[in-house]
Structures are given as structure tokens and as C-alpha cells.
Computed example of a mutant assay.
Amino acid sequence: MDKIEKHIRSTAETDESKPLDKPEQFLFQLSQIPSFSERVFCILFQSSFHECISAVQRKVEILQTVCKVLQSGKCVMQILGLVLAFGNFMNGGNRSRGQADGFTLDILPKLKDVKSADNSQSLLSYIVAYYLRHFDEDAGRESCVYPLPEPQDLFQASQMKFEDFQRDLRKLRKDLNVCSAQTEKVSLQGPNGAISEPSEN
């Protein structure tokens, strides 16, 4: 833009007609709009605000759904109950571990590593098969429903951090405040860009 303005001044000083090309002329005309950068910022913010809010809302909804299912889902309780029961059975000879009332979640990834005597089946696959035989009446049918949250939702929820939510919302709030201030500034400008007094009506 500085080069365009310099070109216009030099042309005016030498009285030589050197018209601008259309792209440069277009940019120059845009620069003559009062508070052009502020207007562009507000337009861009307005166009992206709904999308940003929807993205945050979608993440929150996924997190809420996953937490609700994991905390109160009947199927989840049954599966965790099986893990506890089989764990207590396998540790039956150990007084300190054979009558546990619960277990820590870091045990779950290790279920696949516990193998049968002939190494043909893991504890995880056995628990799944037991659940399907004794708890899922629709097992093997089209009406069968996956008893846990969708794997994709589980993965997304596991990657979420409250710090990210706070950062995204802080940025939205900051941009919204800037947009509000710039909108007020532009609205007070007259047709020539001069600041006019706000109406008392």
C-alpha cells in the first residue's frame, strides 16, 4: 500500500499520467474506506464465530456423553463387574488381593496381556465372550448394540484437556470484545470517517 501511495504522489508531482493497474487500483480504493481493517476484522470474526462455538460445543457434548455412559451405563457396570469378579477369582489364593472391592483403571489395558494356560486366549477376549453369552440377549443379531461409547468418541474424549477449552474460550472472548469495540467505533463514524456524537434517542 505504501508503494501505491508513493506512486500516486510521484505521478501527481510530475504531472505524468501513470494509471494504476486494476489490482492496485482496487487495493487503493479499499484503503480509502474508513476503518477498513476494523471492518474486515469484524466481518471475518462474524463469519467464523458460529463455527468456533459449534466446535467447542461439539467437544463438550462428546465429553458429556462419554462421561455419562461410563458413569451410569448398565452395560459398563456389568463389564467392570466381570473384570472385578474374574480378577478376584484369579487372585483367590491371595488374602490381600482376592477379595478386592474395586480396581484402578490402569488394570484395563493389561487384560489383553493375561493369557490362558495354553496361551490361546487372553483374559480380555474371555471376558468379552462371557459378557456376550450371559448378558447380551441380542448378541449375534442386527439389534445388538455396542455396550460402550463409540470408540471414536472415546478417543476424542481421552485427548481433550480443560486447558484447551479455556484457551479457546478466552480467545473467543478476547476477539468478541475487540469486535464489539471496533463495531462501536465504526458505528460512530460519519460517512467521511469522522467521529460523530452518539444519538441521545
Rank of each mutant, 00 (worst) to 15 (best):
S143Y: 01
T104P: 02
R97D: 14
T65K: 08
I127L: 13
D136T: 04
S125R: 11
P151M: 08
S122D: 02
Y146P: 05
S116F: 00
A157H: 04
S122A: 04
Y131P: 01
R95S: 15
V145T: 11
R133L: 10
F103V: 10
Q152V: 08
P151G: 06
E61N: 11
L70E: 14
F86K: 09
Q71A: 13
H134P: 01
K110L: 15
F86T: 15
S96N: 15
Q99T: 13
S96Q: 15
T65Q: 07
G102H: 08
Y126C: 09
F89A: 12
F135P: 01
Q64V: 10
R141E: 09
K115Q: 13
L70I: 13
M160T: 14
V69W: 00
Q152H: 06
A117E: 12
F89I: 08
L82E: 12
S72D: 14
S120F: 03
G102W: 06
D101C: 11
V145L: 09
D118T: 07
I107C: 11
K110E: 13
R133G: 01
N119I: 05
M160V: 13
S143L: 10
K59M: 12
K110W: 11
Y131N: 02
S72C: 11
L123R: 05
K59Y: 10
T65L: 04
V69H: 00
E137L: 10
G140I: 05
L105Y: 08
S96H: 15
V128N: 06
I79R: 00
M160P: 08
Q152E: 11
K110Q: 15
G87S: 08
I79C: 03
N88F: 04
E61M: 09
V60K: 03
D153W: 05
G93R: 05
Y126V: 08
E137K: 14
D118I: 07
Y130I: 04
K112V: 14
Q78R: 02
V76D: 05
H134E: 10
Q78A: 00
G98Q: 10
Q159H: 11
G87F: 03
G73E: 01
Y146N: 12
C75A: 12
V83C: 08
C144W: 11
N88P: 04
I127D: 06
S143G: 08
A100Q: 12
L124T: 05
A100H: 03
M77L: 04
L148M: 09
C75S: 08
N94W: 13
K68R: 13
D106G: 07
I107K: 15
V76M: 11
P147C: 06
S125N: 12
G92N: 13
P151V: 02
I62C: 07
S125V: 09
G73K: 00
Q152M: 07
P149W: 03
A85D: 14
V60G: 02
N94G: 06
D113A: 14
S125W: 04
T104E: 13
L105I: 01
F86R: 12
V69K: 02
L154H: 01
K68G: 10
I62S: 05
I79W: 02
K115D: 03
I127F: 03
K74N: 00
Q71V: 02
